[in-house]
Amino acid sequence: MNHVAPAQARISIIGAGPGGLTCARILQRHGIAVTVHDRAPGPGARDQGGTLDLHADNGQIALREAGLLEEFFELARPEGQEMRQMDPTGTITSHKVPEADELFKPEIDRGQLRDLLLGSLQPRTVRWGQALDTISGPADGPRHLHFADGTTIETDLVIGADGAFSRVRPAVSPAVPEYTGVSFLEAWFSDVENRHPDIAELVGPGGAHAADGDRGLFAQRNSGEHIRVYIIQRVPVDWISRSGLTIDDTDGIRTLLLDRYANWSPRMRQMITDNDGLYVDRPIFALPVPHTWEHDPTVTLLGDAAHLMPPLGVGVNLAMLDAGELALALADSATVDDAVRTYEKTMLHRSTGTARILEGGAEHLLSADLPDLGDDHDAQP
């Protein structure tokens, strides 16, 4: 059993996404040392994805505990809460416009949120270029983390915040994500007011969704005059290669999509074919429901590593709520083991209930009725 006091423990977070960084920030605010390890060579190594909303009843709670809520509101876009539901002709069938002072779930770019969290941490908290390979050592600790660069460290608690295809998860669970049968193809549009004014007008300041039961589109306004569109299809996970194409064959994919969306209006098809640059393939995976594990005093999970679900407005919000609750449990408990037990008792119950509600929910993305596409649309690992 792990009887180490959190203040004396060596705590290692795997993954420098919103969940991992939120957990680190709150731990440091309570005087608890922590190190974050991330596989990327640096903070700007890859695109962080599109915009997301942070809800007042989960994500914003975590930011308040992190002491960053006011800074978040300075960066957030309340107008991004606007949502348009359209049919395949581009006719608006439902239009939600937020009140002038509405702040329940304002939008923020993922990159801006990550920069906010990174900037709040003590120097050298994040160790870049450290891709976790395996975890060894007894369940009651200490654990050894073996990284792909050949380094090994000893630690008292491993927190898996490393997303859908977590390298920490196998230490506590054999579960692996399963393909939902629904896939996103992401398209980017830049300088939209000048270069894509029709699309900018169609999407508006927030998000826009349209579907016909078999295929759909979801567009979201990002900061800096950018729009991302997610082309949603019920297809095999390897649909691009099955079509004899590769992801960098932009013209070939466009031709295929024009055929599949032939009954949609030319105005709507602009969001499929007028993109700047390559498409990005993002098949949607989810963990089996329920996903739980036997308590381990030296390893736990948060966010998608613990409860990967379809992207229906809960991903980042739950990850940050998990992070805040775990950090506070560590701050308030006598031992690491006590803290992990306290955290998992609440988190696993909550995530199981939410996952049951959203099970099979990827199909809702193809429904003509507007789903809650609140955050994490890009479904990155």
Rank of each mutant, 00 (worst) to 15 (best):
C23L: 11
L245N: 06
R77F: 11
H295T: 00
G44F: 13
C23R: 00
D251M: 13
E154Q: 15
L257I: 00
P18W: 11
T298A: 13
A339V: 05
L328F: 09
A76F: 04
W128Q: 05
S223N: 12
G119K: 02
L312P: 02
F147L: 07
A100G: 01
R124W: 13
P98A: 12
E79Q: 11
D372A: 15
H226P: 01
L257H: 01
A211W: 06
R114H: 06
F218V: 15
E70P: 08
R267G: 12
I26F: 12
G49C: 06
P123M: 08
A286W: 09
D214I: 11
T346M: 14
S241E: 11
L321W: 13
E82C: 13
D322G: 02
E102A: 14
T335F: 13
P236N: 06
G31I: 02
D109G: 08
P311V: 03
V203T: 03
K105Y: 14
A161K: 09
G303F: 00
Y179G: 05
L157D: 02
S12A: 14
E99Q: 12
I240R: 00
E325C: 08
Q28G: 12
I227C: 06
P236M: 05
V192G: 06
L301H: 06
E154S: 15
A200E: 04
Q270L: 14
R356E: 15
E65S: 15
G80R: 00
R242K: 13
L321P: 03
G213W: 01
R267V: 14
E325D: 11
H377R: 14
Y343Q: 01
E359I: 08
P197S: 04
N58D: 11
T300A: 09
A148Y: 08
H55E: 01
A339H: 07
A100H: 04
I135F: 07
E70V: 12
G313S: 05
G353L: 13
V237L: 10
L373C: 14
I108P: 02
L185T: 07
T300F: 08
V235M: 06
V289S: 02
P197A: 03
R228S: 07
L157W: 10
L257T: 00
P310T: 00
D238G: 07
L118C: 01
S265L: 08
Q233C: 08
G206A: 03
A211N: 01
D337W: 00
D259G: 10
N2Y: 10
S94P: 00
V126N: 01
R282Q: 04
D133C: 09
P41V: 15
F73T: 03
L312W: 08
H209C: 05
A187D: 07
G160R: 14
G50L: 02
R234I: 03
D133Q: 08
V176S: 12
L330F: 12
Q28E: 15
T125I: 09
F72P: 02
D87Y: 01
N275T: 12
N275E: 04
G50W: 05
T125G: 09
A286P: 08
R167A: 15
